[in-house]
Amino acid sequence: MITEVSLFRTFLVVLQCDLVIGFRQRGDMLNPVVFFLMVVTMMPLGITPQANTLAGLAPGLLWVVALLACLLSLNSLFRADFEDGSLEQLILRPQSLYFVVIAKVIAHWLTIGLPLTLVAPLLGILLSLPAEGVVPLWLSLLLGTMTLSLIGGIGAALTVSLSKGGLLLSLIIMPLYVPVLIFGASSVRFAVEGLPYLGTLAVLGTFCALALILAPLATVGALKMSVQE
């Protein structure tokens, strides 16, 4: 009598919905990228325009700014769903919320993390990042921003019912970003210094896999808590 909706189909329905919304709000999609560009522009102004100094700092700077851009965009991850009531409807499905959360985080990453990753090499040029660093920067951000979105989802879910969750979200999530930052920036630095960087990339991959498995569990719990308030 009751039709079962497969988990994969729900995953696709949610992903498609969020991607359509993301595409309709292209402005929101661009904001983190513009933020990334602007903060990177501040760096030579604040530190030095000298190419040598900038080149040494570039891996770390690019990673820190990308991390901040990601962090700032997290607040919107579940906000609209919470405010319009569709989060309730998602929770009231009989199946687990786990894959819904993964679908939403992937949609978020496709609209925020991926564009950041794509423009990062261009910004590398602005900071005189040596050419050897471009590919590792690209790869490390690809894996890293996905991990950042997954972990950040927990914070977004924990603060979604608070009207002023933005800064609090950054406070509670930033310490959790430490390992990703360390290995992300190190991958680029290693490449620039001519050292092998596949090992650190592999560690980033491990973080990403771990976050993919574990982070949605906490996010599901936090979302249920937020709706039950």
């Binding site: 919905c17 359509v20 919304i21 309709r24 709000q25 319009d84 009531g85 569709s86 309730e88």
Partner: peptide
Amino acid sequence: LLFIGHLPGVKKTL
């Protein structure tokens, strides 16, 4: 179960 609450669950961008 079908539940319809105060909030309709309607997205502003769809």
